Simulated scan of single mutants.
Amino acid sequence: MLVERAAGSARRTQRGSLLLEFMVAAVLSLLLAVWAGHEWAQRARALQARSLAAWMDVAREAAESFLARHAVELAHAGAADALAGQGYADWAAPQWDELRSAGLLAGGWQDRGPLRRTLGLRVVREGECPGASCRVWGLVHARPALRTSAGGVDESLAAEWLQAAEGRGLVIWPHRPGFLGGAGLRVPVPEEGAEDWAPGVVALAARVPAGQMGDAGSEDTDAYLRVRDSRDPDFQGDVTARGVVRGGVRLAARDSLHLERGWGVGEACAPEGALGRAREGLGVLACRQGVWSLLARPAGGGYMLNSRRGCFNAMGGTSANPVTGACACPAGYVMAQVAESGSITAPEGLTMGFVCLSQQ
């Protein structure tokens, strides 16, 4: 009897120990599951932060291309529509579709990115513009701010984003709501669009690399030209162009117009009305009905030749052709005798007069 009681007590003790072990195992499994879930959530947030930073970096490169292309215009821009002719409704807040149309942003870039964010671009000017102190740069910022479900700044996610931005990121922290702070950099938030600059906003600064912007903000902008510039460049040296040079009204030269290449009368030409010069000798050609035609040719001159005195008259003066300086015609001209006096046997000799006629 005593043996049976002892055996029953042992079985009850064993069942209690197994139940306790099951409870401990269940608690450990729950803790592991919670830890694993938290770890996966953290990894997912880190990947989202990296994706957001990469997506914003593409937009930053496009913004820098915009600043480099329109540096001079931005330094001088007054009204919001100063760049309307270039395709930008507001130069201080260019839209991404405007940059895409200008070829500065890839067509496949999406307007909505990771974490269901959109991006804004704000162009900022510092110093006196235009002027030597003028600096033009931009801010690519994510909208809305990085917030927790409770409404506070999601500092953990912002830290992940800063790490992914590799030192280029800027964040508006709650303790400094009026500034964008980053690695060794702090800039005031823009005055325009206050709703875009709440604590938790992350941004990338877009700046033109050194050497690409030149001295765009300087008053001395006469050294730089831009598309449809209305200023007279007043070049002080030679100008070479590989293509057609077209003038809106007329072509004026203070010295002369030099046509280097010559053409032959009757050769094919284009366009209609073009001017050229004769290949042989002197003469101006015009392109008429697809062939070069002689438009104007200077007189070839004339001379007198004596059988005894040569190109000299009885007084010892020259009788040479004033065009050539000799008793000859210019290239492209032929001589035609127009006068004759005296005799070969006479003491004064035979004198003949010639004029030079164009062969064309």
Rank of each mutant, 00 (worst) to 15 (best):
G316R: 01
A296E: 15
L305A: 05
C269G: 07
P271R: 08
A286E: 11
A270Y: 11
L294M: 15
N321I: 08
M304P: 00
V284K: 00
G283P: 01
P322C: 08
V265N: 02
A268S: 14
W263C: 11
T318M: 00
G317L: 10
S293M: 08
R297V: 15
V291I: 07
R261A: 15
G301S: 08
L295T: 05
R279L: 12
V265D: 08
C311G: 10
P298I: 13
L295S: 15
R279S: 09
L275Y: 12
T318V: 04
G290I: 04
R297I: 14
E267R: 09
G262T: 14
L275H: 10
L305N: 09
A268W: 00
G276L: 08
A268K: 08
M304L: 14
T318P: 12
L295F: 13
N321P: 08
S319C: 03
G317F: 10
A296H: 14
Q289P: 00
R297G: 05
M304E: 14
R308I: 15
G276S: 13
S293F: 01
G290D: 01
W292T: 03
A268P: 13
L282N: 09
N306P: 05
C287L: 02
A296Y: 14
C311M: 04
N313S: 11
W292F: 07
R261G: 14
A270E: 15
E272L: 03
S293A: 14
P322Y: 07
G302I: 12
E272H: 06
C311Y: 02
G281N: 02
A270T: 15
G276I: 04
E280G: 00
A270W: 10
P298F: 14
L275K: 07
L275F: 13
C269M: 12
R309I: 00
L282Y: 09
G276E: 08
A268I: 00
R308G: 07
A320I: 00
A278L: 14
G273W: 03
G262S: 09
N306V: 02
P298M: 12
Y303G: 05
N313L: 05
S293G: 11
A268L: 10
P322F: 04
M304T: 15
G302L: 08
R297S: 11
E267N: 04
V284R: 02
G281Q: 08
G290W: 04
V284H: 01
A286Q: 04
N321W: 04
G264K: 06
R279D: 06
G266W: 11
G300K: 09
G273P: 05
A274N: 04
F312S: 13
R297P: 01
G317S: 10
E267I: 02
G262D: 08
S307V: 05
N321F: 05
G301V: 10
G262N: 08
R297H: 02
N321G: 03
R308E: 13
L275E: 02
N321E: 07
W263D: 12
R288S: 09
G266I: 03
G281M: 06
A299Q: 13
G301H: 10
M315D: 13
P271Y: 05
C287E: 04
G273F: 01
E267H: 08
W292K: 11
M304W: 14
A320Q: 09
M304I: 09
G262Q: 10
M304Q: 13
L285I: 08
C311S: 05
G262C: 10
N313D: 15
P271S: 07
V291Q: 05
